[in-house]
Amino acid sequence: MQYRITGLTLAAIGAGLPGAAGAQTLDLSVTIPQLRVAEYHKPYVAIWLEKEGAAPRTLQVWYDFDGRSAEGAGTKWLRDMRQWWRVVGRGMTFPADGVTGATKGAGTHKIALAGGKGGLPALAPGNYKLLVEAAREVGGREVVTVPFTWNGKAVTASAKGASELGAVTVSIKR
């Protein structure tokens, strides 16, 4: 991403489209692959939405938010999702309302979001990128980018990771 984000402006992506709120649904499917490794920990995952000229929006962050150790375990490793951290994560306060979730194991995870609720703003038509970044303790890291154009009616787009992530599909309807 070439544009620089210094803060999180709420609703920046959805701004300027009155009346669109409430009608959009964004269905997200993220596959975390089964890995044959000696030591496995569920990955930390960040999912966010970017649109040129608008502040990026975090849709989901999956990490050890309950902080099982004294040092508050989870947040210490958020920076390992380094692209998300630089783009938007480092400007947020944790646990972040409406987007925080526990880590998830191998399998396909479906998330249904409604425009204007939680982390998802009401989307104005335009070109977007949905990004999913996974970082695994004692493992690797991968970012999957799903570009799509929202025309206001319906769009489905997908991409596939090679190591830490499997298929990522985004489907938006109104």
């Binding site: 040092e71 947040t75 920076r79």
Partner: peptide, 8 residues
């Protein structure tokens, strides 16, 4: 050089 959280 880059850390997350509030107490590191």
């Amino acid at each position: 050089t880059t850390v997350s959280g509030t107490d590191n």
